[in-house]
Simulated assay, not measured.
Amino acid sequence: MPTPHEAPVTEAEWTIRSAEGDLFAKSWTPETPGAAPIILFHDSLGCVDLWRGFPERLAAGTNRRVIAYDRLGFGRSDTHPGRLQLDFVAAEARDTIPHLCEQLGVGEFVACGHSVGGGMAVETAALFPERCRALVTIAAQAFVEERTLAGIRDAKRGFQDPANVARLARYHGDKARWVLDAWTETWLSPAFADWTLDEALAAVRCPVLALHGDRDEYGSSAHPERIAAGRGAARLLPDTGHVPHREQEALVLDAIRSFLNGR
C-alpha cells in the first residue's frame, strides 16, 4: 500500500481484445495522475499477479498511472494457439501495444520491462519514438549470452520437479507447461542464438535507464551497458539477482522515480 505521504491509488481490471485472443490487464491510477503512464512488460514466466505490490507502489511513488497486462498464453489471458515465433519480442510491440493503447486510452507512455519484458519495452520504444517518453529496463537481456543459457538450463532441470510446475500453475493454470516450454525451448533453440536488440536500440530516441543486479544469474553487466550506451544510464545494483524489483524494491522505486522526474 502507498505510504502516508503518497496519494491513494485506484485499481481497475481490463480486457484487451485482439484477433489472437483476449488479454487480461490491470491499472493502478493515483487520484490526480501526472505525466505519461507507465506500461509494464512482464518476464518469461511472469504475469500481472507476479508483479505483486510493485505496480501500486510505482504508481504512488511516481504519481503516474501504471498498466500491466498478461501476454497471450500467460496468467489470466487467453491460451496461446501455438508456439512462440522467433520474433516474439518485437512482435509484442507490433501486435499488442497498439490494441492496449487504443482500448485503454493511452497516448504518450513510459515503457518499463523486466527480463525479456525489458526487450519488449525496448522494441516498443523503438517502434513508437514519438509516443514513448522514457524507457526503463530491469534485468533485461540484449543478446543471447552463454550465462543466460546456462541459467535457463539450470531452471529447466529444476522444473523436472512437478512441485515447481505446480507453483507455476498457481498463476498460469493449465497454461503452465506451455509457459515453461515457451521460455526454455525458445531461448535454448539454435535458431534463436543470433537474436539481439541492436536494431531496436539504434531506433530508440527517448532517455534510457537500465537497471541490473550484480548477481543476475541470467545476464552479465554487458546487457545494461549495451542497452544504455549513448542513450542513458546503466545502474548495477549491489547484492541483487534477477528480480531487482522484488529483492531491492525500495532502491528500484527510488531509481525509477528520480529518473522519471520532470519527464
Results as ranks from 00 to 15, higher is better:
3 T>A: 15
3 T>C: 11
4 P>A: 13
5 H>P: 13
7 A>T: 15
7 A>V: 10
8 P>Y: 07
8 P>T: 11
13 E>G: 08
18 S>N: 08
20 E>P: 02
20 E>H: 09
20 E>G: 04
25 A>D: 06
30 P>R: 13
32 T>L: 07
36 A>L: 05
37 P>F: 12
38 I>R: 12
38 I>Y: 12
39 I>T: 05
51 W>A: 01
53 G>K: 03
56 E>D: 02
63 N>D: 10
63 N>C: 10
64 R>N: 04
65 R>N: 01
67 I>H: 11
72 L>T: 04
76 R>Y: 09
78 D>A: 14
79 T>W: 11
84 L>M: 14
87 D>A: 06
93 A>W: 15
94 R>N: 15
98 P>Y: 08
99 H>S: 12
101 C>R: 15
101 C>G: 13
104 L>M: 14
105 G>P: 12
105 G>A: 11
106 V>S: 03
113 G>L: 03
115 S>C: 07
116 V>D: 14
116 V>C: 12
122 V>F: 10
123 E>Q: 13
127 L>K: 14
127 L>H: 13
129 P>R: 07
133 R>H: 06
133 R>N: 04
135 L>A: 05
135 L>P: 13
136 V>P: 06
137 T>L: 10
145 E>Y: 00
147 R>Q: 14
148 T>D: 00
148 T>P: 00
149 L>G: 05
150 A>S: 14
159 F>V: 00
159 F>L: 02
163 A>Q: 04
165 V>Q: 10
166 A>P: 06
169 A>E: 08
177 R>Y: 00
177 R>M: 01
178 W>E: 02
185 E>M: 07
186 T>S: 09
192 F>I: 01
198 D>G: 05
202 A>G: 14
202 A>T: 02
207 P>R: 02
208 V>D: 04
209 L>S: 03
211 L>S: 05
212 H>R: 07
220 S>W: 01
223 H>I: 07
229 A>T: 09
238 P>F: 04
247 E>I: 02
252 V>I: 12
254 D>Y: 01
259 F>S: 02
